[in-house]
Deep mutational scan, measured.
Amino acid sequence: DEIHIHFNGVTIEFRGLTEEAKKALEEAIKRGASEEELKELARRLIK
């Protein structure tokens, strides 16, 4: 299970995320999180 985020022309790929983690990332994107914020969020979620 993986998710691809297209962000300002950059694709960020995450693997092994739970549904909750995906929802958290989607919410962050909707509120306009920066690419760095998304990566940091993903790091926290994957652990």
Results as ranks from 00 to 15, higher is better:
Asp1Gln: 12
Asp1Arg: 05
Asp1Val: 15
Asp1Gly: 09
Glu2Asp: 09
Glu2Phe: 15
Glu2Cys: 08
Ile3Phe: 14
Ile3Glu: 05
Ile3Trp: 15
His4Gly: 06
Ile5Phe: 12
Ile5Ala: 06
Ile5Ser: 03
Ile5Cys: 08
Ile5Thr: 04
Ile5Arg: 01
Ile5Asn: 02
His6Arg: 04
His6Leu: 08
His6Asn: 12
His6Ala: 09
His6Gln: 11
Phe7Ala: 05
Phe7Lys: 03
Phe7Tyr: 10
Phe7His: 06
Asn8Val: 05
Asn8Tyr: 02
Asn8Phe: 06
Asn8Ile: 06
Asn8Met: 08
Gly9Cys: 02
Gly9Pro: 03
Gly9Asn: 07
Val10Met: 12
Val10Cys: 05
Val10Gly: 10
Val10Asp: 08
Val10Ala: 08
Thr11Glu: 08
Thr11Pro: 03
Thr11Arg: 08
Ile12Gln: 04
Ile12Cys: 03
Ile12Tyr: 08
Ile12Phe: 06
Ile12His: 07
Ile12Pro: 03
Glu13Cys: 09
Glu13Phe: 13
Glu13Trp: 13
Phe14Cys: 09
Phe14Asp: 02
Phe14Glu: 01
Phe14Trp: 08
Arg15Met: 08
Arg15His: 13
Arg15Gln: 14
Gly16Asp: 14
Gly16Met: 04
Gly16Val: 05
Gly16Lys: 08
Gly16Arg: 03
Leu17Phe: 12
Leu17Gly: 06
Leu17Glu: 02
Leu17Trp: 06
Thr18Trp: 08
Thr18Gln: 06
Thr18Tyr: 04
Thr18Lys: 06
Thr18Cys: 12
Thr18Gly: 12
Thr18Val: 05
Thr18Met: 03
Glu19Gly: 12
Glu19Cys: 05
Glu20Phe: 05
Glu20Ala: 09
Ala21Tyr: 05
Ala21Phe: 09
Lys22Trp: 09
Lys22Met: 12
Lys22Tyr: 10
Lys22Gly: 03
Lys22Cys: 03
Lys22Asn: 03
Lys22Arg: 13
Lys23Glu: 11
Lys23Asn: 11
Lys23Leu: 11
Lys23Arg: 11
Ala24Gly: 03
Ala24Phe: 10
Ala24Lys: 09
Leu25Glu: 00
Glu26Met: 11
Glu26Gly: 06
Glu26Ser: 11
Glu27Lys: 07
Glu27Ser: 09
Glu27Val: 06
Glu27Asn: 07
Glu27Ile: 09
Ala28Gly: 01
Ala28Cys: 05
Ala28His: 03
Ala28Ser: 03
Ile29Gly: 02
Ile29Asp: 01
Ile29Met: 13
Ile29Pro: 00
Ile29Cys: 04
Lys30Asn: 11
Lys30Met: 10
Lys30Val: 12
Lys30Cys: 04
Arg31Asp: 14
Arg31Cys: 03
Gly32Ser: 02
Gly32Pro: 02
Gly32Leu: 01
Gly32Gln: 01
Ala33Gly: 02
Ala33His: 02
Ala33Lys: 02
Ala33Trp: 08
Ala33Asp: 11
Ser34Trp: 02
Ser34Asp: 08
Ser34Cys: 04
Ser34Pro: 04
Glu35Met: 15
Glu35Phe: 14
Glu35Gln: 08
Glu36Phe: 07
Glu37Arg: 01
Glu37Ala: 04
Glu37Trp: 08
Glu37His: 02
Glu37Leu: 02
Glu37Cys: 02
Leu38Asn: 00
Leu38Phe: 06
Leu38Asp: 00
Leu38Thr: 00
Leu38Met: 08
Lys39Tyr: 15
Lys39Gln: 12
Lys39Met: 15
Glu40Phe: 02
Glu40Pro: 00
Glu40Thr: 04
Glu40Ile: 04
Glu40Ala: 08
Glu40Gly: 01
Leu41Pro: 00
Leu41Ala: 01
Leu41Val: 02
Ala42Trp: 15
Ala42Asn: 01
Ala42Leu: 15
Arg43Thr: 13
Arg43Ile: 14
Arg43Asp: 15
Arg44Trp: 10
Arg44Ala: 14
Arg44Gln: 15
Arg44His: 13
Arg44Lys: 13
Arg44Asp: 14
Leu45Pro: 01
Ile46Leu: 13
Ile46Met: 11
Ile46Arg: 04
Lys47Pro: 14
Lys47Met: 15
